[in-house]
Nucleic acid binder design. Structure first.
Length: 418
RNA sequence: GGAGGGGUGCCCGAGUGGUUAAAGGGGACGGGCUGUAAACCCGUUGGCUUCGCCUACGUUGGUUCGAAUCCAACCCCCUCCA
């Protein structure tokens, strides 16, 4: 590969964001000359995004940093159709109101990563429902449908894989790639957008848009995809015991977000630092070279930086401090999930398993019992020996706190009140 | 519209009248070893007021001492035909 002239492309290439590009040299020439507008589309299937969407979000962030203009496209319209890419089954259809509520939630996340506004380099958020909803079927088919060959559509992974596995693919979903292609054209016309980025599973959809732009408007459009990020263990990243790693604090506390990064595999640290933090590359290379126990410093750095981006520097520091006190000193920090229990109730005594459950460390009393039987329940750092054990006022410290743990990693506090 | 196949626990998938809270695998969680890592070994994996009770195999009824297993109707999915 020849040396890239564009700051943006060079940065994201070195950081591991680039998988494929429709015309890297052409794009490089364009981006090194003047600011360009680029977009990435996001589904509105939930009211938050999770770390699976972090790669595209970071791409937009770097784009803006390099002086270009990012567009976050909300798939308010396409979510009604459902992208078949990478999915074996059709998705449940969402109602209009659900989609709108989801968009509002997602918007708040973007505010952390992008600067929105009306200035030349300010980010834009648009909703494709604005143009898709009013389409007239016959007009649309005649103007744009004729540029799509079904023969070719059948060869795209999103369709082909479904057919090969004999999983159903509805006609509705079959149209998804056409709509996404049209999105690109629409954004090119409205905002002069020339680049669409996305995950590697979006390649087919993106290429369709590039071609549509050329055929209909003789526009030169570009596409760029990033690799699917998996963990060193080979799993799709972003799952914890509690489920997806969400980016909003209501769904996943900043402390838990910090812990997610802190607990990554050794083999992932360097890659994740490059992708999910803004640290300079030479600093990352140093951290990546650390061995043995020292690699924990790199993981803390990863957790600090990733959390600061998502939840703010202050939240990251609180989470780090809580982790330090909890793990390195065997104490506890302010940021641990806390359950309030009345003095009166504790005077009588509460079964340890019930408290574990109420503190959210287990999903049910039965699970808590099993945890204790298996030696995983801890009260103030001491293993709970007996599943019938009760917790009383005497177990609280001078501050009226009791520390509960499920295993060595998951902790919660009980605060005595009243 | 016709014919056939199928819907089982977080997922995949056995089970075709009782010994089935339901084999096996995956995942997840816990213990041991560690570095809040990986690998490995062991254990757990429906709920509850837990030596007992309750709820579960698409839904609703039925047969039976007894059903995930048999029957009926309904819902949903797939395949082939029209």
């Amino acid at each position: 590969m020849t040396a890239l002239k564009s700051d943006f492309l060079r940065e994201i290439t070195e950081r591991g964001f680039v998988h494929q590009c429709t015309d890297l040299d052409g794009l490089d020439a364009l981006m090194s000359e003047a600011p360009v507008t680029a977009y990435i589309g996001f589904d509105c299937t939930a009211d938050s995004l999770h770390v699976g969407s972090l790669v595209p979000i970071m791409l937009l962030h770097w784009l803006q940093r390099a002086g270009h203009r990012p567009i976050a496209l909300m798939g308010g319209g396409t979510t009604k159709v459902g992208d078949p890419s990478g999915k074996d089954d059709s998705r449940r259809l969402l109602s209009q109101t659900q989609i709108e509520a989801n968009m509002a939630g997602i918007r708040r996340i973007f505010d952390r990563y992008l600067t929105f506004g009306d200035g030349p380099g300010d980010a834009l958020m648009v909703n494709n429902d604005d143009w898709l909803d009013g389409l007239q079927l016959i007009d649309f088919l005649r103007d744009y449908g004729r540029h799509f060959s079904v023969n070719r559509m059948l060869t795209f992974d999103s369709v082909r894989l479904r057919l090969e596995r004999e999983h159903p693919l509805s006609f509705l979903e079959f149209n998804y790639m056409v709509l996404q292609a049209y999105d690109f054209l629409e954004l090119a016309r409205r905002h002069g957008c020339v680049l669409q980025m996305g995950g590697s599973d979006q390649w087919g959809n993106i290429v369709n848009g590039v071609e549509l732009g050329r055929r209909v408007d003789q526009r030169a459009l570009y596409g760029l995809t990033s690799p699917l990020i998996t963990t060193a263990a080979g799993a799709k990243m972003g799952k914890t015991a509690e489920g997806a790693v969400w980016l909003n604090a209501e769904r996943l506390a900043a402390y838990d977000y910090w812990q997610f990064w802190r607990n990554c595999d050794d083999g992932d640290v360097g890659r994740f630092l490059r992708l999910f933090t803004l640290l300079p590359l030479d600093e990352i290379n140093r951290l990546d070279g650390l061995d043995g126990t020292e690699i924990n410093d790199a993981k803390k750095m990863l957790a600090n930086e990733a959390t600061a981006l998502c939840h703010g520097r202050e939240a990251a520091e609180t989470a780090a401090e809580t982790a330090r006190r909890t793990f390195e000193r065997g104490g506890h920090g302010d940021d641990l999930p806390t359950l309030e229990v009345s003095r009166g109730e504790l005077e009588v005594g509460i079964a340890a398993y019930e408290l574990l459950c109420r503190a959210g460390l287990t999903a049910s009393n039965g699970e808590a019992r099993r945890l204790i039987k298996g030696g995983g329940g801890r009260l103030n750092n001491r293993q709970i020996a007996d599943e019938t054990a009760t917790v009383g006022l005497a177990d609280s410290d001078d501050d009226g706190l009791i520390k509960l743990s499920a295993g060595k990693k998951r902790h919660a506090l009980v605060r005595v009140i009243g």
